[in-house]
Lab assay of single mutants.
Amino acid sequence: MTEYKLVVVGAGGVGKSALTIQLIQNHFVDEYDPTIEDSYRKQVVIDGETCLLDILDTAGQEEYSAMRDQYMRTGEGFLCVFAINNTKSFEDIHHYREQIKRVKDSEDVPMVLVGNKCDLPSRTVDTKQAQDLARSYGIPFIETSAKTRQGVDDAFYTLVREIRKHKEKMSKDGKKKKKKSKTKCVIM
């Protein structure tokens, strides 16, 4: 069974824990209790493949930012979460993405942009803004509501699919490099 290491990042209060708990335990946590770091595991079937999701729910508070490099190193894919009623959390996505790329030393890291709290009427981040940002990053965008469960499975499952595509691409690139290195030079 394939294991996928997913990391949920975003500013404090955007609903990272609520999304994760909704996926794992099928219930909505409405009281806000700032996370330092929590880890969850769940076995699911995605596109006919049974897999184990190892999900790291991270601290959004700035005082825990020193811990970010460590979990970013171990993560295979990242859910970059903002709240649709919090423009600052949307603007912060850029910083999370840049930090992930720096730590992973790669421009090509599996990510999904997630606009959470889409059940709320007080939207300050337009869907088109988020779609445009995701398009500019070359990553999928999904709106979710941890409260109603809308888009929750889709967000995590899409990230797994992005990781699969990335692994497939990397193995193809690896095979191309191996083929090239088999060419021999004969000096007579």
Results as ranks from 00 to 15, higher is better:
residue 107 E to N: 06
residue 123 R to K: 12
residue 73 R to V: 08
residue 118 C to P: 06
residue 63 E to K: 06
residue 120 L to K: 08
residue 69 D to H: 10
residue 119 D to Q: 04
residue 98 E to L: 02
residue 101 K to I: 04
residue 74 T to A: 13
residue 83 A to P: 15
residue 117 K to C: 14
residue 79 L to H: 01
residue 110 P to F: 02
residue 114 V to N: 00
residue 82 F to D: 01
residue 67 M to I: 05
residue 115 G to Y: 07
residue 123 R to H: 10
residue 116 N to Q: 14
residue 110 P to K: 02
residue 124 T to S: 12
residue 108 D to F: 09
residue 115 G to L: 13
residue 110 P to C: 03
residue 119 D to S: 05
residue 92 D to A: 14
residue 117 K to G: 13
residue 74 T to S: 12
residue 83 A to I: 01
residue 112 V to P: 00
residue 126 D to M: 08
residue 112 V to C: 03
residue 122 S to L: 08
residue 81 V to C: 09
residue 104 K to C: 14
residue 71 Y to K: 12
residue 86 N to M: 03
residue 111 M to A: 01
residue 65 S to K: 10
residue 119 D to V: 02
residue 126 D to W: 07
residue 116 N to E: 05
residue 73 R to G: 11
residue 108 D to V: 05
residue 109 V to R: 03
residue 119 D to Y: 02
residue 122 S to N: 12
residue 66 A to C: 13
residue 78 F to P: 00
residue 116 N to R: 00
residue 96 Y to G: 02
residue 113 L to D: 00
residue 109 V to Q: 01
residue 113 L to C: 07
residue 126 D to E: 09
residue 74 T to C: 09
residue 126 D to F: 07
residue 73 R to H: 12
residue 64 Y to Q: 03
residue 106 S to D: 11
residue 122 S to C: 10
residue 74 T to N: 14
residue 96 Y to V: 13
residue 102 R to V: 05
residue 112 V to I: 12
residue 106 S to P: 05
residue 83 A to H: 07
residue 123 R to N: 14
residue 104 K to R: 15
residue 125 V to R: 11
residue 109 V to C: 06
residue 82 F to N: 03
residue 112 V to N: 00
residue 81 V to Y: 00
residue 118 C to E: 06
residue 83 A to M: 04
residue 82 F to A: 14
residue 88 K to E: 13
residue 73 R to P: 07
residue 98 E to Y: 02
residue 107 E to A: 12
residue 83 A to T: 12
residue 97 R to V: 15
residue 117 K to S: 13
residue 64 Y to R: 04
residue 90 F to V: 13
residue 65 S to F: 05
residue 126 D to R: 05
residue 124 T to N: 12
residue 108 D to Q: 07
residue 117 K to Q: 12
residue 126 D to Q: 11
residue 108 D to I: 05
residue 122 S to Q: 13
residue 101 K to V: 07
residue 124 T to V: 10
residue 64 Y to T: 03
residue 125 V to S: 11
residue 125 V to P: 11
residue 106 S to N: 13
residue 126 D to T: 09
residue 72 M to L: 06
residue 77 G to C: 11
residue 77 G to L: 09
residue 107 E to W: 08
residue 114 V to A: 03
residue 99 Q to G: 03
residue 73 R to F: 08
residue 101 K to D: 05
residue 125 V to K: 11
residue 80 C to A: 04
residue 69 D to Q: 12
residue 98 E to W: 01
residue 88 K to W: 09
residue 125 V to H: 10
residue 105 D to S: 09
residue 126 D to K: 08
residue 63 E to I: 02
residue 123 R to Y: 11
residue 112 V to H: 01
residue 121 P to Q: 09
residue 71 Y to L: 04
residue 111 M to G: 01
residue 99 Q to S: 06
residue 72 M to E: 07
residue 81 V to L: 11
residue 83 A to Q: 14
residue 124 T to I: 08
residue 76 E to M: 13
residue 79 L to T: 00
residue 108 D to Y: 07
residue 78 F to Y: 09
residue 65 S to M: 09
residue 81 V to G: 03
residue 83 A to G: 15
residue 79 L to R: 00
residue 82 F to H: 10
residue 114 V to E: 00
residue 91 E to C: 02
residue 79 L to K: 01
residue 110 P to N: 02
residue 110 P to Y: 01
residue 63 E to P: 04
residue 117 K to F: 15
residue 69 D to W: 02
residue 123 R to F: 08
residue 117 K to M: 15
residue 123 R to L: 11
residue 113 L to I: 13
residue 112 V to T: 02
residue 103 V to Y: 09
residue 100 I to W: 04
residue 66 A to S: 13
residue 122 S to D: 14
residue 73 R to S: 11
residue 122 S to H: 11
residue 63 E to R: 06
residue 89 S to A: 13
residue 101 K to A: 12
residue 115 G to F: 14
residue 105 D to V: 04
residue 114 V to D: 00
residue 64 Y to A: 03
residue 104 K to A: 13
residue 78 F to V: 05
residue 118 C to H: 07
residue 70 Q to V: 05
residue 66 A to L: 09
residue 115 G to H: 05
residue 77 G to M: 06
residue 72 M to S: 08
residue 115 G to W: 07
residue 72 M to N: 06
residue 74 T to P: 05
residue 75 G to D: 03
residue 72 M to Q: 07
residue 71 Y to W: 12
residue 81 V to F: 11
residue 76 E to C: 14
residue 73 R to D: 12
residue 119 D to P: 03
residue 114 V to C: 06
